[in-house]
Design a protein around this nucleic acid. Structure first.
Lengths: 146, 146
DNA sequence: TATTGTTATACTCTATAACTATA
DNA sequence: TATAGTTATAGAGTATAACAATA
């Protein structure tokens, strides 16, 4: 551990914060080379995972509220990575779709991020990596209702 | 795992982000009852760990830059949790000290946060908790220079 | 010339409210 | 009445630059 006081490093939240900062710095650097942000990659990844989604589904999947989703998608549309078309089944809604360019950028970003994960997790043996992921997921899901 | 797409949850950074959000929400709720923020607790904890520190030492220990440190300490001083006095050894610097009230709030906050950690880590067995901490610390320190 | 603290400014993120059009 | 998208606005957090006093 660096030169941080023990009173802070004994807090799990503080350890998570430091580890996240390191992982995010690596990821953002890789994505900047592709011209997108981490959140924008999230949009591309969500869109690739399924069929065209309504705008609010994209935002909800990423935990981004409506107003921020508007700006996020507007930026991606202006750069030709996604398109928005009216949903014939719901005239209030827009369907968001990956373009060919968007899919290309998404694939490159996914590869770059997978490489970042590998380098970030390098200090851990493969079994320890799996256990870390499993532990984090259990913490995210929280205590099981008895 | 909740209803999140696999393309996101397979990213370690995303898992860290979700786990941190949960831990921070628990911590901030506990600290709000004591009238301080997480960062303000950080100041109190750093001050308690050692002798009176110059302002820039406090900021550096928390990763907060000079200008933000000014506002952070001003708020704590206005509420009587810390005092600032000129450093006789360096007339540019201020020495920051915990007041009696500040120490009381710090102790209560430390107890409340320890309780938060216990509840946050409840899904993991004691051995798994130790391993999670150890894993996070290895990731924070990064790859050892060969 | 560098350090310590301060102020002012700007920029990003996020949160809220209000509005429209549809359901 | 609720939902989908949009806009405008204000707030917190952070970053930068400039300054005065001191080293």
């Amino acid at each position: 551990m660096q030169d941080l006081p023990d009173v802070l490093t004994e807090r799990v939240a503080f350890l998570l914060q430091l580890a996240l900062a390191r992982a995010q710095a690596m990821g953002e650097r890789a994505l900047t080379a592709l011209g997108i942000s981490g959140r924008e990659y999230g949009v591309l990844a969500v869109l690739n995972a399924g069929s065209p989604s309504a705008q609010h589904h994209v935002g909800r999947a990423l935990g981004v509220d409506r107003t921020s989703t508007v700006k996020l998608l507007a930026g991606l549309e202006a750069r030709g990575l996604i398109t928005r078309s009216p949903d014939p089944a719901n005239r209030r809604a827009y369907l968001v779709t990956l373009t060919g360019t968007g899919e290309l950028v998404r694939a490159r970003a996914a590869a770059a991020l997978a490489d970042c994960d590998d380098r970030f997790l390098a200090p851990l043996a493969p079994g320890d990596r799996r256990q870390l992921r499993a532990g984090l997921q259990r913490l995210i899901d929280g205590p099981e209702p008895m």
